[in-house]
Amino acid sequence: MKKLPNILSKFAPLITITILFSLWELGVRLYGVEPWILPSPLQVANALITSANVLVHHTLTTLMEALLGFMVSIILAITVAFLLTNINWLNKAFYPLLIVSQTIPLITLAILFTIWFGWGLLPKVLVVVLVCFFPITINLINGLNSVDIDQVALFHSMGASSWDTFKMVRFPHALPAFFTGLKISATYSVMAAVVGEWLGAKQGLGYFMTITQKSFAIDKVIAAVVVICIISLILVKIIEIAEYFLIPWNRLNQ
């Protein structure tokens, strides 16, 4: 009997989604809503199937931009976090700037990037980096700084160099926080690429959404949204799996 709530909680999201979609389907049919205002879930599913080829093509473009931007963000975040936590004056000089940079409206920067760099890959990757870089960096910095100073003192008393201490104490200690940052960024990365494409592109899901939206093919717009959700979730799942294997000691306290 005790198992039952467990199983239920596992399928809870699925049940919620099914109920919501049924209500949506029912509502659209009952009130005869026009498809160019709001298509029903079945119409969206139909659009997913009929436009599958085009969608795959655009998804690959978007995924490429997102992954590229995500990768660059990780490298940049590790470098910046390492520098800021090790060199005090750099931290004083740049940490506030890092925070301020996040208050600039993303959309204005995205527009500027398109003006400066055209309609190619670069401006989209830059938007992704802009969005992904911050959560990874801040989490990594917090992780590195939250290390027990007595732990560092112990290493010092045993004659460890600061590189030894970074490698063996600070970095492993920061890994769980680092992965938290990665998961947040992964959810944003696809969306950020789409925003970049929205403002000027020749391919990608964002581009697909702008043209379908202009012809009032709302079912196709929503189909693209579904694809965005699914690949974002897959990215997060991949990171969770990597986390499971890379920081085995972190599983123990769960």
Binding site: D150, Q151, A153, L154, P172, L175
Partner: peptide, 27 residues
């Protein structure tokens, strides 16, 4: 100047990320 004495602090200060063998081998 450090490096002459073995110092065990109040907390065990074992590294959560390393197994027992590695922790002990650290010095």
């Amino acid at each position: 100047k450090t490096g002459q004495v073995g110092y065990m602090q109040q907390k065990d200060l074992l590294l959560a990320s390393k197994n027992v063998q590695t922790n002990i081998a650290i010095p």
